[in-house]
């Protein structure tokens, strides 16, 4: 049985800056990292491997530089990695992205039965949380989002039981396999790769599937396969903040000033 984990390389939010003249993103010099949520997805796939003896394949769609993120996944203990990269894939929105990722999972499933696909809850750049559900729909897998515990996997009975973390409540849910699971960061603490694994991974092979291999119709992928377009990008201007009183030497006074200001401006009524 195979576990497939979907990981994406994203710009590190901590280094993102806006060009004040144009209001656009400055991309130069912004380091790429694995989408932090996907690190938890990766960790969970490795725990399933250790517990149930499943094999783990990691896939990523992105530019060829994303191969580095996949090599890191190998260093952490993934068995196989596939990079989905082709100029015709670029500019894909969620609809087109899930087309490529679902097709890749189908190809993997031809060789070995897939039990579970794991995604992060969302990415930090797109933050749509829709890629996982889109893949589940295309593959007709059970969909289990926002999972904070995988409680049991019974591949004989073809069932998985998880806990989902929702607004104000948890839900214990059982589903038939194969299933697609998206995970929240509370699910685990990701491990660091060992130096030995890192060295081994450096020379490891990253399989590349471009569209020669995938053979997806060009109208269904990339810009052509994406119904949504970004029309405008602009930065959000935050109003100047107002410092109230002298909180260091007169905390009481500052506290009074705050509450008086809030009530006078009708922000708070007591």
């Amino acid at each position: 049985m195979l576990i497939v984990v979907c990981i994406k390389e994203v710009p590190d939010a901590a280094y993102i800056n806006i060009d004040p003249a144009t209001g656009t993103l400055i991309r130069e010099g912004v380091p790429s990292i694995i989408n932090p949520f996907d690190n938890h997805a990766l960790e969970e796939s490795l725990r399933l491997k250790e517990k149930h003896g499943f094999r783990v394949a990691a896939i990523s769609m992105g530019p060829t530089s994303a191969g580095e993120t996949l090599r890191n996944a190998l260093a952490m203990g993934v068995d196989e990695v596939v990079l989905l990269s082709d100029p015709v894939f670029s500019g894909s929105d969620t609809l087109a992205t899930t087309k490529v990722l679902a097709e890749a999972i189908k190809r993997l499933a031809e060789k070995e039965e897939v039990a579970i696909v794991i995604c992060g809850k969302q990415t930090i750049d797109g933050a749509t949380a829709q890629v996982g559900p889109g893949i589940a729909t295309r593959l007709k897998y059970s969909q289990l989002t926002l999972v904070d515990q995988i409680q049991n996997v019974d591949d004989q009975a073809g069932k998985v039981r998880v806990r989902r973390m929702l607004e104000g409540r948890y839900e214990i849910v059982e589903a038939t396999l194969p299933a697609l699971i998206t995970v929240v960061p509370q699910i685990n603490t990701p491990r660091e790769p060992t130096v030995r694994m890192q060295m081994m991974a450096e020379d490891a092979e990253v399989t590349l599937w471009d569209n020669e291999v995938m053979k997806l119709p060009k109208e269904s992928i990339g810009v052509k396969g994406s119904p949504t377009r970004v029309r405008k990008i602009f930065s959000q201007i935050m109003p100047e903040s107002e410092i109230l009183g002298d909180g260091i030497y007169d905390p009481e006074g500052a506290a009074h000033l705050l509450i008086d200001t809030l009530t006078e401006e009708d922000i708070l009524s007591l």
Binding site: L244, D246, G247, H256, T263
Partner: peptide, 27 residues
């Protein structure tokens, strides 16, 4: 402070109880 509307520079351990006390007093 860059995203704040109002800011208080001070020790939370002093300012927060002071706010609570003042709200109680006004009520």
């Amino acid at each position: 402070f860059e995203v704040a509307t109002f800011g208080i520079e001070g020790d939370v351990l002093q300012v927060v109880p002071a706010i609570t006390r003042y709200v109680r007093e006004l009520r």
